[in-house]
Amino acid sequence: MKEGEKNIKAEDISYIEKMCADTWKSLYRFIYFKVQNREEAEDITQETYCKAILYMKKSNVRIDKSMGFLKTVSLNILRDRWRKSKRQGKTVNFDDINPEMTAIEDYTENIAQREIIQNALKILNKDQRTVIELRILKGCSVADTARLMNKKESTIRVMQYRSLQALNKIIKEKH
């Protein structure tokens, strides 16, 4: 045993095991939400528990609100990592950069188009909207769509054609 390290009692071990079992899922999700990387979230979660347990052993305290304490520890670890990566910077060789590969795609046009279509779908009647949702958006077959809507397959084909025409007309009129 190292100098300054206290003996861990059996009740301390069971307390630590219970704390970890009760909090690891929500702590991992919290960290993953921040870093958006599975491996990094796993590393930070593990480091969080190591630092928290070390603190509890040194201070000989039990944490009442363990989730809040663990989130604070994990945020401190994240801040330290972000500061460290900011200081180090990144080396870039401009000759190796392909502008087409590194260009950031502009999603605003996609979002605008999606909103236009959603607004146009709201104008269609219920059957027209349902046919388009089942056939086009969800990819259901004509037979499945007919069964779900309790109509004939030929009726579904005609409804789909007319619904798409109506949708096209609404979009052209509005935009």
Rank of each mutant, 00 (worst) to 15 (best):
E105G: 03
N93W: 06
T108D: 12
A143F: 08
I117G: 00
Y107D: 04
R114Y: 06
L164G: 05
N119K: 15
T145S: 15
T155A: 15
I116E: 15
I136P: 00
P99F: 04
N110A: 13
S141V: 01
I156Y: 08
I132R: 02
A103R: 13
E153L: 06
L134V: 02
R129P: 00
E133M: 10
N110H: 10
K152G: 07
I123M: 10
V131D: 00
K138N: 10
R162A: 06
A120L: 05
V131R: 00
R162G: 05
T108P: 01
D144K: 12
K122Y: 03
G139Q: 01
Q118L: 13
I117W: 01
I132C: 01
I123H: 04
N93K: 03
E115D: 13
K122L: 13
E105Y: 04
K152L: 10
L134Q: 03
G89E: 07
I132S: 02
N98E: 12
A143D: 11
I97G: 08
G89M: 07
E115G: 02
V142A: 05
I136V: 15
I117M: 10
K151R: 13
E153Y: 05
Q113C: 09
K126N: 10
R162I: 04
V142P: 01
R135D: 03
K90M: 11
C140P: 00
L148R: 05
M101G: 07
V158L: 09
R135W: 02
T102Y: 10
F94E: 13
F94C: 06
S154F: 03
R87S: 10
G139F: 01
R114S: 12
R147V: 04
V131Y: 02
D127M: 03
I123A: 06
I136A: 07
I136H: 03
Q88I: 08
T155E: 12
F94W: 07
D127C: 03
K90G: 05
T108I: 04
Y107V: 12
V92C: 08
R87E: 14
T91S: 07
Q118K: 14
C140I: 01
Q160W: 07
F94M: 11
E109C: 04
C140H: 12
R147Q: 13
K152T: 08
Q128G: 13
S141P: 00
K138L: 14
K138H: 02
E133P: 00
E133Y: 09
Q165S: 08
I132Q: 02
M101C: 08
L137C: 07
K126I: 11
R147K: 15
K152D: 13
P99D: 07
Q118S: 10
E133R: 09
K151Q: 12
E105V: 14
T108Y: 08
T145G: 08
L137Q: 08
I116C: 11
E105N: 06
A112P: 00
T91C: 04
Q128L: 00
T108M: 08
R162W: 05
M101H: 07
K138C: 02
Q165F: 05
M101D: 12
